[in-house]
Amino acid sequence: MTRFEPKIIAFLCNWCSYVAADAAGVSRFVQKPNVRVIRVFCSGMVDPSYVIKAFASGADGVLVAGCHPGDCHYLAGNIKALRRSFLLRKLLSELGVEGKRFRLEWIAASESPLYAKLMNEMIEDVRNLGPCMRSSQKPLKGVA
């Protein structure tokens, strides 16, 4: 049997985390190919419905990454993301999505090694958890 390859969706903030991811590639850090990156302007704009939609569409893990608190390009967008993350994680776990599948991290533009490390760590965590509920299913109507 082939090894389970998890699908991770990463919402990366345009001003810090995306730059870090870019730099991690340029610096040729070893990264596993399980990540699909979505560039967003701020971690604060990642509405809980994006995360739920990602899981419903077959993601095995979702990472939201933004600037460190205080460094937000839009003053406090990342704090908004922080506020939502706890309740969202609680809802997800009640619906059967384990806490480790959803992470919120602060990654500054200069922290490309941290990005690579976090990503690899998360992929292994999710691999150990196995496929998420919607991983191999064709979603029914209503979920794009």
Partner: peptide, 22 residues
């Protein structure tokens, strides 16, 4: 206009938390 009622509620409720401390 809502995608998922749970997500909407999480977003609405937690955005009103009067705190910045994790």
């Amino acid at each position: 206009a809502v995608f998922d009622p749970g997500a909407k509620m999480v977003s609405a409720v937690s955005s009103t938390f009067d705190s910045t401390e994790a």
